[in-house]
Design a protein around this nucleic acid. Sequence first.
DNA 1: TTAATTGCAAACATTTTGCAGGTTC
DNA 2: GAACCTGCAAAATGTTTGCAATTAA
Lengths: 142, 142
Amino acid sequence: MNTSETIRQIPEDLTGLLQSYRIQPTVQRLQIAAVLFQRREHMSADQVLDNLQAAGGRVSKATVYNTLGLFARRGLIREVIVDPARVYYDPNTSEHHHFYNLDTGELMDIDADDLRLQALPKPPKGTVTAGVDVIIRVRNES
Amino acid sequence: MNTSETIRQIPEDLTGLLQSYRIQPTVQRLQIAAVLFQRREHMSADQVLDNLQAAGGRVSKATVYNTLGLFARRGLIREVIVDPARVYYDPNTSEHHHFYNLDTGELMDIDADDLRLQALPKPPKGTVTAGVDVIIRVRNES
DNA sequence: TTAATTGCAAACATTTTGCAGGTTC
DNA sequence: GAACCTGCAAAATGTTTGCAATTAA
């Protein structure tokens, strides 16, 4: 299909990574991809923007939002919908799930092997499954 | 704990239902509860408002939002976070999961018995599990 | 009559959009 | 040079808040 698994390990080849997802690599897109793939953390659009600006990158807010949307649409990253107030983006697109800390807003991965679903129910008539998200909401103790 | 299972079947006793969740029953709250528990459907705040106004109820937008938030905080209903654009509220608080149709925005219940999770992973140190949500995103065929 | 609730409008936060100017192939 | 991308500011959502007026215990 593509060589993403290999490329994933080599953030230096961001240009090739973007291209393999049919995304024209531009200065801003490479900077945004760099933040995501070097940190390999879940981030909101605003966090990406802050990070970039702190590092001296010159990217506008609109471009960050539009670019993250594009990355997600192309399958390079994944949207994580856990907080009604903002979308998180996950550079890890392999099958996995999430802990979401309601107190801190922190997201943590759960490996697919650590959380198996027993036989998925059939999707409603006329529909096909597009993805399965499991979110375990946690709260700080006491 | 409470008699919600019984009360649930009797939307006429909405006053008692609210009281059993430590919610002072007011005209507006009863109207909002009526919409949710008579339809027994997932609804956004805006849908609740529309429904109410169409039925001639006089409730303000702020009150609908605040009331749904209160209901959820008290455990009478459940928030469903699947769409970055809006929160859905679910009058069914028993353990269950959801199909979410990306094309139509429709939410459908999945009975807990039809989707078992094989041994939940332990929550991160210092945290306790507050809830588990499984969302199966589906798309209309072809 | 005191506390709680409501409604309105304004405030907020996140995200999207229109469009002029720049960049890329 | 044609198509595409970026930045800015303005607009569009959905939701929250401040506060005066109203309602409930």
